[in-house]
C-alpha cells in the first residue's frame, strides 16, 4: 500500500471518531422513534375539548398563550454572546501557551485578555445591568 502523507492519516482519524459520534446520534434517534411508536400502540386516545384546553390553573385560559411578557433577560443575552465568543479563543490558546518559547509573553497577553473581560463585567455592573430593575 502506498504510504499516505501524515496529514491525511490524521484527517482519517478525525473523521473516524466523529463518525462514531454520528452513529450514536442515529442510535439515539432510533431509541426515541421506537419509544414514541411503542407509546402510540400502548396508550389510550380519548381526547375531549376540555382536555385539549391550555392549562391555566383550572380556569379558562385568558388571551393567547404567546402573550406579550416583559423580557428582562435580553441584556444578559448580549453579555453572554460577547463573553462566550471571547472565551472560545481561550481553548486553542490554552493548549500552547506554556510551550517553550512563549512563556512570559503569553502570560502578559493572558492578563490583558482577562483585563478586558473584567473591565467589561465591571462596566455592566456599574451600569446597573446586573441588578434587577
Amino acid at each position: 500500500m502506498r504510504k499516505l502523507p501524515e496529514s491525511t492519516v490524521l484527517a482519517a482519524d478525525y473523521f473516524q471518531s466523529y463518525s462514531v459520534v454520528g452513529l450514536l446520534a442515529l442510535v439515539g434517534v432510533l431509541f426515541v422513534a421506537v419509544a414514541f411508536g411503542a407509546g402510540r400502540l400502548l396508550r389510550p386516545v380519548v381526547p375531549t375539548p376540555e382536555k385539549l384546553l391550555t392549562y391555566e390553573c383550572g380556569v379558562d385560559p385568558v388571551g393567547e398563550g404567546w402573550a406579550h411578557t416583559q423580557v428582562r433577560y435580553y441584556v444578559y443575552a448580549f453579555l453572554y454572546v460577547i463573553f462566550a465568543v471571547d472565551s472560545i479563543f481561550l481553548f486553542p490558546w490554552a493548549t500552547v501557551f506554556a510551550e517553550a518559547g512563549y512563556g512570559a509573553t503569553t502570560l502578559v497577553e493572558m492578563f490583558i485578555f482577562l483585563g478586558f473581560l473584567a473591565v467589561g463585567i465591571l462596566y455592566a455592573w456599574k451600569k446597573g445591568v446586573l441588578t434587577w430593575t
Binding site: 392549562y55 398563550g65 411578557t69 443575552a77 463573553f83
Partner: peptide, 27 residues
C-alpha cells in the same frame, strides 16, 4: 410550542439561566 403562559415564562427563565451559567462553566 406549548402556547401556555407558564411554559413560556419557564422556557425564558431556562434560557436566561443557561446564558448566565455557560460562561463560568466554559472558563
Amino acid at each position: 410550542a406549548s402556547a401556555n403562559k407558564f411554559s413560556l415564562l419557564g422556557a425564558l427563565r431556562t434560557a436566561a439561566q443557561l446564558l448566565a451559567y455557560e460562561l463560568p462553566m466554559l472558563l
